[in-house]
Design a protein around this nucleic acid. Structure first.
Length: 911
RNA sequence: GGGGAUAUAGCUCAGUUGGUUAGAGCACCUGCCUUACAAGCAGGGGGUCAGAAGUUCGAGUCUUCUUAUCCCCACCA
């Protein structure tokens, strides 16, 4: 029979086992909710722990920004599944109306055609093809990263049941008067030719100019000025001017209020009006009013009952409100021509460079052109109020908590939500217009109507516009589960437990889901919101499709494997903020996988042909108990950290348990015991190590599922552990009756300190030059102090002393009952022991003298600090008794150290 | 303009209600290919916790100010 060491290659080969394990998971349908796989979990769960995956846009493939966020989710859901026996992670895809439409339009443009040429029907078909391609690739990315979502529940926002939910929600809100059509200034994207919601607009600083233009006064003879200078950054909008406004108290212009001025290059005259909005100290102090193309002007126009003149078409080209030759010109081209024309007429005063921020379309990056038009709106105030209240009442918790403020600010200042988009890709608005002139009814319907409900006319047409993508996304906690029809499924999965997503969609998505949950279901859709960090490149730029700086998870998997991807993602995830990530970071994960693999390889090499015995407490040595206790501690630390979404703490605990406690100490200690000729000793040793290792594999399985699932197959069955068909459905160690050995653990820690001290003494002294042969002849004198009788018994056991000598690579450790250390020795002291290594030559010791003097100085300082504390009345009166006790113990330990150092220095003959 | 965050070792970051001598990984130095792992092991060096003031018996942690960087929201024609 081959040994496991021979079976297991020297390094993990994820390219080989990951696809195989994926097949096993798929075949067994481990992640399908409703299927029971575990023999260890007994409890019935009517309400499984549920996470709604933020459905990625089908616009493009996923990058490691997604990969990182979803890894955290999979880690949590896999942990929950192992802990509770059942858990649901609902996967999805978002049709991403505007984003996808833009991608398809780009594709069409590259083929030399356009959406208008091919028509709406063909366009929608192209968009569907796009979704099939990219959606399919995304699902493959999910799968390869090992995500344990229930693919049988995969929901796409354009699925018929989602579409029905959208219509139902729309109709209900419409009938309640919470959806209305309104004429107002909207954010218009002249490239995509659609209105945008406020959240789809980003403000960016641009370098422009502040132009001053002369508006000639009418009736010039009676005035002492010929014109009023007007400052603007957008001269081309002057064709839409309806007034010039000045501050009522501005002495320069007071006398002109009520006069008329000529709009340059345009036959019209407009009045000079007074409004306190105008700042006298900015520009020329006179402001041109263009209500149809500026939000502030729009407000002023309303105040003064001025008309609005729209001068741009949908592509932001000047319309026939502008005279020849400007009519038909693009807005930027028009600006240049206009300035030239003004200069020619002597109406151009000056221009100065001016940096200001202006709204841009988040998708097309085009400069937004405010446009006066009719759009559909959701009245948000009544929906937002209970959402804000939920945060105020702490019914909803944010991780990290600081987002609560942002949340409240937005909700308390909420604007109505513009939900209509002049796009072809998305849910068409379920509004119909009766074409019967005598009726003209406008009605909403969740089913396609054939007749007007009011006049029964069959001459009805549906609204052309589609809904904002987020109008389907905000129903995400509801629509995948069949709302409003299937109440049984909904009851099982609503509300879900946590939303894990990026903070950039806190308003667009998270807040609106809570609105929808409260509005349609009457309760919060989840009570925890975890925001993961933003993933950036090394320059600090966010991963994005347009920049092309993202890392493709598939590339990472090919180079390092999915576990390395996942491990690194968790390793880099800070408590908040941003992650800088580059390809070589995944070596961190790969190294860890290798370590884990090799630890297993070592243990398994000792297993062949052996029956694994159950753990027997009476056979356990000190280090066994210490290690088992470390397992217990780690298991609880991890569980608590996961509950609190302290992913960093959970990750750290996993790392320390496996790398430090198990590999650095456990396996090293076991090497000594496995050499033993006593079969009982080796059997105990193997039993402990396999038990601890399997538990560790389970603990870290949610994070690195592939390698753990692969390794567990090689592990012989341990009598103390039940194992289900897959590790992914086996019981999590926090639910196991793990053994606790508090006292032994402490003694094991002292042992580690002692071993480290010996190693350090040797390596930092002239002893480092000894050959390993000579070194293994060394004897260490040791005096224990400040330890309990039980600890002393543990530490002085001959087996344990041999182990410590072996780990220190010395011949022997002699425990002395008196603290009279040998002369002529290297010495180290701590709060629990003094050690000394005798030397032959005094000059070796002489060379160490400075080291001890330095040590003495330090201890004196520390001692001074503790003495200062303990002699302070304020400290003794006010500090926590436990803290005082700690300081007292610390002082006692320092005193012992001081004495030992003094003694050592005496052996040097120092004064 | 309003709000928020960050500043800790050369680099990337931990440090939960203030309480022993501030930690980890990478990088660096020294010694080791010791039969699980050189993608590793053992040991080591390196930080007046951005600056200043304050509260406190005690401050990396709390308060104020300053400086630097970043984010969000609103916007100056």
């Amino acid at each position: 029979m081959k040994t496991s060491a021979e079976i297991l290659p020297k390094a993990a080969n994820p390219q080989e086992y990951e696809p195989r394990i994926l097949r096993v998971w798929g075949k067994n349908k481990f992640f399908e909710i409703g299927k029971e796989h575990s023999k260890e979990h007994s409890k019935e769960h009517n309400k499984p722990y549920t996470i709604l995956m933020p459905p990625p846009n089908v616009t493009s493939f996923l990058h490691m920004g997604h990969g990182t966020g979803y890894t955290i989710q999979d880690w949590v859901i896999r942990w929950r599944r192992m802990r509770d026996g059942v858990a649901c992670w609902l996967p999805g895809l978002d049709h991403a109306g505007i984003a996808t439409q833009m991608m398809v339009e780009k594709q069409l443009a590259s083929e030399g055609t356009s959406k208008h040429e091919i028509g709406r029907e063909a366009f929608v078909k192209r968009a569907q093809e796009w979704k099939e391609t990219y959606g399919g690739k995304i699902l493959e990315q999910f799968r390869l990263m090992g995500f344990s979502c229930d693919f049988s529940q995969l929901t796409y926002t354009l699925d018929s049941h989602c579409s029905y939910a959208v219509r139902h929600a729309f109709v209900q809100l419409f009938n309640e008067g919470l959806i209305y059509r309104g004429l107002r200034l909207v954010n218009w994207d002249p490239v995509l030719m659609t209105a945008l919601g406020d959240e789809e607009v980003v403000n960016k600083e641009i370098n422009g100019h502040l132009y001053t233009i002369r508006y000639p006064l009418c009736n010039q003879g009676k005035q002492d000025k010929a014109f009023i200078p007007v400052a603007t950054t957008r001269p081309e909008t002057l064709f839409g001017d309806v007034a010039v406004a000045v501050h009522p108290d501005d002495e320069r212009y007071q006398s002109y209020i009520g006069s008329q001025v000529h709009v340059p290059l345009c036959g019209r005259t407009v009045p000079v009006i007074a409004d306190t909005y105008v700042k006298s100290d900015f520009g020329s102090g006179a402001l041109k009013i263009t209500p149809a193309h500026d939000p502030n002007d729009y407000e002023i126009g309303k105040r003064h009952q001025l008309e609005s003149i729209s001068i741009f078409d949908d592509r932001a080209r000047l319309n026939d409100q502008a005279p020849e030759p400007f009519c038909g010109m693009d807005r930027f081209e028009a600006r240049k021509s206009l300035i030239a024309a003004l200069k020619e007429k002597g109406l151009f005063d000056s221009s100065t460079p001016h940096r200001y921020s202006a709204p841009h379309s988040d998708r097309s990056k085009a400069l937004i052109e405010p446009k006066l038009c009719s759009q559909w709106y959701v009245k948000t105030e009544p929906l937002a109020a209970p959402v804000a209240q939920a945060a105020r009442d702490n019914a909803i918790t944010f991780y990290p908590g600081l987002w609560k403020k942002t949340w409240l600010y937005w909700l308390d200042n909420i604007q109505d939500w513009c939900i209509s988009r002049q796009l072809w890709w998305g849910h068409r608005i379920p509004i119909w217009y009766c074409q019967n002139d005598a009726c003209k009814e406008v009605f909403a319907s969740s089913e396609d109507p054939t007749r007007c409900p009011k006049c029964n006319s069959s001459h009805i047409i549906q609204e052309e516009d589609v809904l904002d993508t987020w109008f389907s996304s905000w129903l995400w906690p509801l629509s995948p589960f069949g709302w409003p029809k299937d109440t049984t499924t909904l009851e099982r999965f609503y509300p879900s437990d946590v939303i894990i997503t990026g903070s950039e969609i806190i308003f667009q998505w998270v807040a609106r889901m809570v609105m929808a949950g409260i509005k349609f279901q009457g309760t919060l859709p989840f009570n925890k919101v975890y925001f993961n960090a933003t993933v950036c490149d090394m320059k600090g730029q966010k991963f994005s499709k347009t920049l092309g700086n993202g890392i493709d998870p598939i590339d990472v998997i090919e180079q390092y494997g999915a576990d390395a991807l996942r491990y690194t993602a968790a390793h880099l995830s800070p408590v908040s903020g941003r992650i800088k990530m580059e390809m070589k970071d995944f070596a961190i994960g790969r190294n860890f996988i290798t370590k884990l693999w090799n630890g297993a390889r070592y243990l398994l090499s000792h297993c062949h042909d052996k029956t694994i015995e159950p753990l027997q407490e009476e056979s356990l040595e000190l280090w066994h108990k210490g290690l088992l206790h470390e397992l217990y501690e780690a298991s609880h630390t991890i569980d608590n950290a996961m509950v609190a979404f302290r992913m960093h703490d959970a990750h750290k605990a996993l790392y320390q348990l496996i790398w430090n406690s198990i590999c650095d100490w456990g396996i090293e200690a076991s090497k000594f015991s496995l050499k033993s000729s006593d079969s009982h000793t080796t059997a105990t040793n193997l039993s402990v190590m396999l038990y601890v290792y399997e538990c560790a594999l389970r603990l870290i399985h949610p994070l690195i599922p592939f390698v753990t699932e692969e390794l567990i197959h090689y592990f012989p069955k341990h009598p103390n552990l039940e194992r289900s068909k897959g590790l992914c459905v086996s019981l999590y160690p926090s639910q196991l009756p793990l053994l606790k050995f508090e006292k032994a653990y402490q003694s094991w820690q002292v042992s580690k300190e002692l071993i480290t001290s010996i190693r350090r003494l040797i390596q930092t002294s002239t002893l480092a030059k000894l050959s390993s042969q000579e070194r293994s002849q060394l004897h260490v004198w040791c005096h224990l102090q400040n330890v309990s009788p039980q600890a002393r018994a543990y530490l002085e056991a001959s087996q344990h002393l041999s182990l410590m000598a072996s780990l220190s690579q010395v011949a022997h450790i002699d425990i002395s009952t008196e603290d009279k250390m040998p002369p002529c020795a290297l010495v180290d002291v701590s709060s629990h022991f003094e050690i000394a290594i005798a030397l032959q030559k005094t000059e070796d010791i002489e060379s160490q003298r400075d080291v001890y003097l330095e040590k003495q100085k330090k201890v004196e300082i520390y001692l001074g600090n503790t003495q200062k504390k303990l002699s302070s009345q304020g400290f003794l009166r006010k500090a926590d008794p436990q803290v005082i006790e700690n300081v007292k113990q610390q002082q006692a330990a320092l005193e012992l150290q001081k004495q030992a150092i003094t003694k050592t220095l005496l052996t040097f003959g120092a004064s």
